[in-house]
Design a binder for these strands. Sequence first.
DNA 1: TCCGCAATGTTGACATTGCCAACTCGAAAC
DNA 2: GTTTCGAGTTGGCAATGTCAACATTGCGGA
Lengths: 202, 202
Amino acid sequence: MSTLRMSRPYHHGDLRTALLDAALQAVEAGGHATLSLRDLAQGLGVSHAAPYRHFANRQALLAAVAATGFARLAEAWLAAWQGAGTTGAGPTDTGPAARLRVAARAYIGFATERPGLFRLMFQGPPPPGAEAAFAGLQATVAAALPGAPEATVKARTIAMWSAMHGFAWLCLEHRIRPAMLGPLAPGAMLEAVLDAALGPQG
Amino acid sequence: MSTLRMSRPYHHGDLRTALLDAALQAVEAGGHATLSLRDLAQGLGVSHAAPYRHFANRQALLAAVAATGFARLAEAWLAAWQGAGTTGAGPTDTGPAARLRVAARAYIGFATERPGLFRLMFQGPPPPGAEAAFAGLQATVAAALPGAPEATVKARTIAMWSAMHGFAWLCLEHRIRPAMLGPLAPGAMLEAVLDAALGPQG
DNA sequence: TCCGCAATGTTGACATTGCCAACTCGAAAC
DNA sequence: GTTTCGAGTTGGCAATGTCAACATTGCGGA
């Protein structure tokens, strides 16, 4: 029975997505290590066991968050890649290598702007959607290497992914910091990594 | 008083290093996320609060483990680099790029052979010793680029570190798996990453 | 040699947390 | 209107990190 007046309805309405949203926010704010299911539930005005009606356990919730992270990353990647290719067909049209470079900056930007989410995405068992990430990457790399054999495309994809992912991670975790760079500007080191991964002609 | 006979001595002797050893083993076996101070203490035949006499908290113990990990990684890196340079001065002598390539393989081998430790090392606040890792890397890269300006050396160091670290991490977390490679052999993709990071002439 | 002290270890406790079982509520199907 | 079942609640348990208070021991100085 409603204890007094205006008591919250017994059913939340859409607790599942509310949990996902709150978890995403918590992961971005404090990292997945400190996320507490009970905190989440309390924040949503719901009892401490309610989350278990929608997620088998903490790990399942985190996996779902990671999956949405992969969707957003793929979105950002593709948007950057497509955006870089729609500058008209004139002589200033962006070549395929330059488009890849723009996309790579989006990848690294995503990582540094959402470090908590990015860390979660690339830790532990791959969540659903992580698999498609490689396929999307490979498709854009293939577009930059028309006519190349599949093995070459895969090799270049892995090389590029490794370079930009490693750089993103090392920046994220402050293993690479501007202080250690001396004369090298932060932007320049990003370009150096991309030069090595894509060739300086990009 | 000793409850009966042969009771363990009240003082452990060297609990600090015993804790470090046990923690290292636990991290390599099950990952740092599941490491429990109480388990560790029980395994060493010591009460559950004893670890707090040597480490302020769980995080401090993990940081110490990570620090020894960095020491071992630097050791492996340097050993590979030096080992690759002592093949005599004949025409088969290894060039600087090839030596870097051997060292990079050692880096990736370290990561894949000790995934739990490697994950710990590159997560959270950098432990003492992490700083020196970059300096060691840079020294070997500098040796491969005699006469190059500092900015170039730093740029190449970061590019190489990013590539090999990213590749190691993605393999570690099974984001890169042999199954997704198709015609590309596992060894070949490693070489492709190193080609991109070092130039194919290495 | 004896005493005191600081380092090291122990016991007990507390709060937090993930997770489970049993129960309840209420909306939708029949 | 009755039934049913998904969704939420209460209560509890075990594990864990951490702290406070106490115990033990070895070592250095009187």
